[in-house]
C-alpha cells in the first residue's frame, strides 16, 4: 500500500511538473508572453485596441501576481479550462476531447497487436539468432527502424491509395460511415504503426532472448527434451515478463509520439494532426494542450506499467524498497 501511494505521488508530481512547464514556458521564452498566451492573431487584434487589450489582460489574469496566476493555472488545468484556440475558434479542451479518441483508436490496437506479434517474432529470432531466417528478419527490423515513420506513411499512401486505389486517400471515417469505410480509412495508418512497433519490439525481445538463451539452465531444460517453443514461453517469457510489461507501457508512450507524425500524412484527425495545425498557426494554447495530453498519456502509461510490474514481480512485491 505504501508503495502504491509513493508511486502515485511520483507520477502525480510528474504531471504537475508538466503543468508547471506549460505555465513557465510562455513567460520564460524569448518574446512577449502575452503573444504566447493570447495567441498571435488575437494579440494582433488587441494590441491596437487598448480597451480590448485591458480586457484580455483581465481575462487571462495577467495583471495578478505570479503566484496567483500559477494557482489559477493549476486550477484551470484540472477543471478543464485549457484556454481558447483562435485558429479553431473553440475552447482548447473541446478540440482535444474531440480529437483524442481518434489517436487512441489508432494507437491502442496497434500497440497491442504489435506486442503480440513482436514478442512472437522476437522469441523466434532470439532463440536461434544465427539461422538465415533470423538474420534476414533482424535486418528487416533494423531497416524499418532506420526509416522515418512518416516517410513510410507517404510511401504507403502513394502505393496503396494513389496507385492501387485500395483505400481512400487519408481522412477519417464520418459518423455515418459504414464499418468497411471506417476500416478502409484506418487500415493504412494502422499498418504503418503496426509495422514500426513490431519491428522495435521484436528487436528488444530478441535482445532479451539472446541473453537468456545463453544461460546455463537452458542446457538443462534441453537435456530434458522440451520442445523449443513451449520451452520459450515458459522459461524465457516468464522471467522476462516484468521488464516486458514495463516496456509495453513505455512503448505505448513511444507509439503515441510516433503516431503524431503519421496522422499528419493521412490527414487523420487526431492529436498529431491537431498539433500540426496549431504549429502552423502559432496557436500556442493549442500547441501546449497537444503536448500536455501526450505527456499525460505517456506518464499514465508509465504509471500503469509500473503498477503491473509491481503486481507481477514477486521480488518487488515483497520488498517494497529495492536498494539499487
Amino acid at each position: 500500500m505504501m508503495r502504491l501511494l509513493k508511486s502515485f505521488l511520483k507520477y502525480f508530481s510528474l504531471i504537475l511538473i508538466i503543468v508547471t512547464l506549460n505555465f513557465m514556458l510562455p513567460r520564460v521564452m524569448p518574446g512577449d508572453p502575452m503573444v504566447f498566451i493570447f495567441g498571435e492573431e488575437i494579440y494582433g487584434i488587441a494590441v491596437n485596441n487598448p480597451e480590448l487589450f485591458a480586457q484580455f489582460v483581465e481575462k487571462y489574469g495577467l495583471n495578478l501576481p505570479l503566484i496567483e496566476q500559477y494557482r489559477i493555472h493549476i486550477i484551470n488545468f484540472f477543471t478543464g479550462d485549457w484556454g481558447y484556440s483562435f485558429s479553431f475558434g473553440r475552447p482548447v479542451f473541446e478540440i482535444i476531447a474531440e480529437r483524442l479518441p481518434f489517436t487512441l483508436l489508432l494507437t491502442f490496437p496497434a500497440t497491442l497487436m504489435s506486442l503480440a506479434i513482436g514478442i512472437a517474432i522476437g522469441l523466434r529470432i532470439g532463440w536461434r539468432p544465427n539461422r538465415i531466417s533470423s538474420r534476414i528478419t533482424t535486418s528487416i527490423c533494423l531497416l524499418i527502424h532506420s526509416v522515418p515513420s512518416y516517410w513510410l506513411s507517404m510511401v504507403f499512401l502513394l502505393v496503396f491509395s494513389l496507385w492501387l486505389r485500395f483505400v481512400p486517400v487519408g481522412g477519417a471515417p464520418r459518423p455515418d460511415s459504414t464499418l468497411i469505410e471506417a476500416i478502409s480509412h484506418l487500415i493504412l495508418p494502422f499498418s504503418v504503426l503496426l509495422l514500426f512497433n513490431t519491428a522495435y519490439i521484436a528487436m528488444i525481445v530478441r535482445g532479451l532472448t539472446v541473453e537468456v538463451s545463453e544461460e546455463e539452465f537452458i542446457a538443462t531444460a534441453i537435456s530434458k527434451g522440451l520442445k523449443h517453443w513451449k520451452f520459450s514461453i515458459r522459461h524465457l517469457l516468464r522471467p522476462s515478463l516484468p521488464p516486458l510489461i514495463f516496456l509495453t507501457a513505455i512503448e505505448l508512450g513511444f507509439t503515441l509520439s510516433g503516431a503524431l507524425l503519421v496522422e499528419i500524412v493521412f490527414n487523420w484527425p487526431g492529436i498529431g494532426y491537431t498539433m500540426l495545425q496549431a504549429v502552423v498557426e502559432r496557436d500556442y494554447p493549442l500547441i501546449h494542450a497537444t503536448f500536455t495530453i501526450v505527456a499525460v498519456a505517456v506518464i499514465t502509461a508509465n504509471a500503469i506499467g509500473d503498477l503491473l510490474t509491481g503486481f507481477l514481480d514477486p521480488r518487488v512485491r515483497n520488498n517494497g524498497d529495492i536498494e539499487n
Binding site: L14, L25, G253, S257, L261, V279, H288
Partner: peptide, 19 residues
C-alpha cells in the same frame, strides 16, 4: 528520469515553436 518520461518530439515541437 524526468527527461526520459517527457515525450521527446512533442517537447521539441513546443520549444521550436517558441524559439
Amino acid at each position: 528520469d524526468l527527461f526520459l518520461v517527457i515525450p521527446g518530439l512533442p517537447m521539441m515541437i513546443v520549444l521550436a515553436a517558441y524559439l
